[in-house]
Design a protein around this nucleic acid. Structure first.
Length: 700
DNA sequence: GTGTTTCAGAGGTAT
DNA sequence: ACCTCTGAAACACGA
């Protein structure tokens, strides 16, 4: 039986994905004191007064942890909530909170409650008790975050199904081989399966989201949707379905059918159009940005050659658009663009609300009747930035002579496969980044010896079968990456076990995705307030590796004497994992060595801070220039490849979202507030200029 | 390497 | 049962 998309809470079948289970897991994890250990990256002069605070605070935090599901920038928010709650709730409040949250089986509910709590706390703080503007800001912010989370969820499902397909195709290939030579010519049974024809992972992903009630706006709405601004880019039709912005992955016209006749809409005529996609499919379309002539649907020969082969009829979408004219109901207009800045080669932009001012029937180019609709863009909306790829961030330079403010052709001095230019349009005279030496790979302090004991897998060429590959077994009998787009991480994990020097596979193995160096054209650029920053000239798909955090691998204890240094990264896989937002944690199954090790690691950590860290103060790579953001587009992933000691894991940065060219790359530094101490032993504070809507205003 | 053709795919809508 | 046309593999072509 098909599960309808009715919003019911408790009908879901228990499964590894079942939210209620997930909540339970959080409960268990939250109940150990380890959570109070401060963030993984600190100023070195920290007198780690990591005195675990009172049980009260712990309880508070646990409650919020629970509520906070897995949300993006979870870490930041947890800290903030913990702080606010600390100010505003008493112990009773805490208990209530914990009880409420343990009842919540629906993750969306949990998030909602967390938001409520956050807002309530804010209001109590007096931050926005007087201002409506501020209050609405809070609402706005959560809508944006919800959209982002929904898209991340879609991406996760998508990559999961991509992997499933890749597995199937690989298996088909192998099975195809045995009947080799003459005996397998005609009547091959596997021939049908062998046709490794596209099984659309995007469609499977949206199906999954409907089953799980994860579509953000399952009810159709007239007008704009909160959290999706004019100019928003979607990277496939399926993404729009996932958030409920346009609920078909195929149709051009999305409309409300007869079923919406009741309730608040009883004075409208149905069907009623609410959103259309202009993708240049119809030969009779005319697109002049602010004014559009849109051709109705139907009569198409459906082979993609834009040819009309029949008369159109005033029904379905066509009728729905006519009703928009009669009722003056605006439609959302989405344009499709060819663009290299997408993993599908296409980008869809939301271009705003348009009024359907007129409609008529005429003989189209092919001589058949088509319905036409004149649309006019409503005034007072942000300017259209529609022309192909430029969109909002500006233009990517074509050659080095075109780069404005170039201060260095390649800060890596030829070490990286892709040169990294530096630009400075802020300082006068413009200066290049100084005070460090570029290192492409880790420098290991002389008193540290990297273990070299990792056993390898026996695969040949490229690993593909998770049942036989030893390295896949370490990852819970799955590969963490998909092959597509040169390797993408499906979802964040505690630790990723990659193939290493002792493995039989070659360098092109999918399980070596993070070992292949820089893939994107990155640029270091100067900002007015945040010092240096990094952006990419290329589109980066979600899950793609961006770079490793390189510096000197050092014992943490040796840094305490060093004075100011903002480039320390503590290697602390578990903490990193906890601080990570947006992506759900893999269901823990006992077979995972990671999990087996977890207790040990926790013991080590609960009594002390991480043993090793990466110091990029005087040597380092591109990663040392990447800024913090409270709503980042990258996340940290610990990776083990040449050995299996989590304390010495490699620290990789991956794309959390689809990142358009020229958007600044950021990750969450993960500082807990008040966790950083100056040389004088006093708490140090630093303002945050990330500019995110949900910025907590302090880096630490 | 680039351009063109092919076709499965699946939910919404109305019957 | 019908309608919708995307997305990506498969194919064809050219260097």
């Amino acid at each position: 039986m098909v599960v309808q998309s009715l919003p019911s809470v408790d009908t879901s079948i228990p499964s590894p994905e079942n939210p209620s289970k997930r909540v339970k897991i959080h409960l268990e994890e939250g109940s150990s004191p380890k959570d109070v250990v401060p963030g993984q990256r600190r100023v070195s002069a920290r007198l780690q007064a990591a005195k675990q605070k009172a049980d009260k605070e712990l309880l508070l935090k646990r409650g919020v942890d629970l509520l906070d599901k897995n949300g993006a920038s979870c870490r930041k928010r947890v800290n903030k909530n913990a702080e606010n709650l600390n100010l505003n709730l008493n112990l009773n409040g805490t208990k209530q909170l914990t009880q409420i949250s343990s009842r919540l089986t629906e993750p969306k509910m949990a998030v909602k409650v967390a938001k409520m709590v956050q807002r309530a706390a804010k209001i109590e703080e007096g931050l926005d008790s007087t201002s409506h503007v501020n209050a609405s800001n809070v609402v706005e912010k959560s809508a944006h975050i919800k959209v982002k989370e929904t898209l991340r969820l879609f991406n996760k499902h998508y990559l999961h199904f991509v992997q499933e397909e890749e597995m199937r195709c690989a298996a088909v290939k192998v099975n195809k081989k045995p009947p080799k030579g003459k005996n397998a010519k005609k009547g091959d049974v596997p021939e049908a399966d062998v046709k490794g024809k596209a099984k659309r992972p995007d469609l499977k992903a949206i199906t999954k989201m409907m089953e799980n009630n994860e579509v953000l706006y399952p009810e159709k709405r007239i007008g704009c949707l909160p959290g999706i601004d004019v100019g928003h880019r979607f990277y496939s039709r399926a993404e729009m379905v996932a958030v409920g912005f346009h609920s078909h992955w195929l149709n051009g016209i999305d409309y409300m059918g007869q079923s919406y006749r009741k309730g608040e809409y009883d004075h409208y005529t149905f069907p009623l159009a609410i959103a259309i996609v202009l993708s240049g499919m119809y030969e009779d379309d005319l697109d002049n940005a602010e004014d559009v002539i849109y051709t109705g649907q139907g009569g198409h020969d459906l082979t993609g050659n834009k040819r009309q082969i029949r008369d159109q009829v005033l029904e379905r979408g066509n009728l729905a658009l006519k009703n928009c004219v009669d009722l003056g109901v605006p439609v959302r207009v989405i344009r499709g663009h060819e663009s290299a800045s997408s993993y599908t080669g296409k980008v869809y932009t939301y271009d705003g609300l348009y009024k359907v001012v007129q409609y008529w029937a005429e003989k189209g180019i092919s001589g058949f009747t088509v319905f036409k609709y004149r649309l006019r863009r409503l005034e007072g909306q942000p300017i259209l930035t529609t022309n192909q790829v430029q969109f909002t961030y500006g233009r990517v330079p074509k050659s080095s002579s075109e780069i404005r403010g170039l201060v260095c052709e390649d800060i890596s001095g030829g070490q990286e496969d892709v040169p990294i230019p530096a630009t400075n349009l802020v300082d006068d005279p413009p200066v290049a980044p100084t005070g460090y030496k570029y290192y492409k790979s880790m420098k290991v302090a002389c008193n540290i010896k990297l273990p070299a004991n990792a056993a390898g897998c026996n695969c040949k060429g490229s690993c593909w079968d998770p049942k036989t590959c030893e390295c896949a077994r370490l990852n819970g009998s799955d590969f963490p990456y998909v092959q597509r787009d040169g390797g993408r991480l499906i979802e964040a994990k505690h630790v990723v076990f990659e193939c290493g020097p002792n493995c039989g596979c070659g360098p092109s193995c999918v399980n070596r995705t993070s070992q292949r160096g820089l893939r994107y054209r990155l640029e270091v650029f100067r900002t007015p307030k945040k010092g240096w920053a990094v952006r990419s000239w290329d589109f980066i798909p979600a899950g793609a590796p961006v770079c490793e955090y390189i510096g000197e691998l050092t014992r943490t204890e040796e840094l305490d004497s060093v004075s100011e240094n903002n480039y320390i990264f503590d290697i602390d896989c578990l903490q990193t994992m906890r601080g990570l937002g947006g992506r759900e944690r893999r269901q823990q199954d006992g077979s995972l060595p990671v999990i087996q090790n977890e207790d040990k690691v926790d013991e080590q950590r609960s009594e002390n801070v991480p043993e090793f860290c990466i110091d990029a103060g005087s040597i380092g790579n591109i990663a040392r220039f990447i800024n913090h953001s409270c709503e980042p587009n990258l996340f940290i992933q610990c990776v083990l490849s040449s050995h299996q000691d989590v304390k010495l894991a490699r620290v990789m940065l991956f794309a959390a979202d689809n990142i358009p060219p020229l958007q600044e790359l950021t990750y969450d530094y993960g500082y807990a507030l008040d966790s950083v101490y100056g040389p004088d032993g006093k708490v140090k504070r630093m303002a945050c200029y990330c500019g995110a809507e949900g910025c907590r205003k302090r880096l630490f």
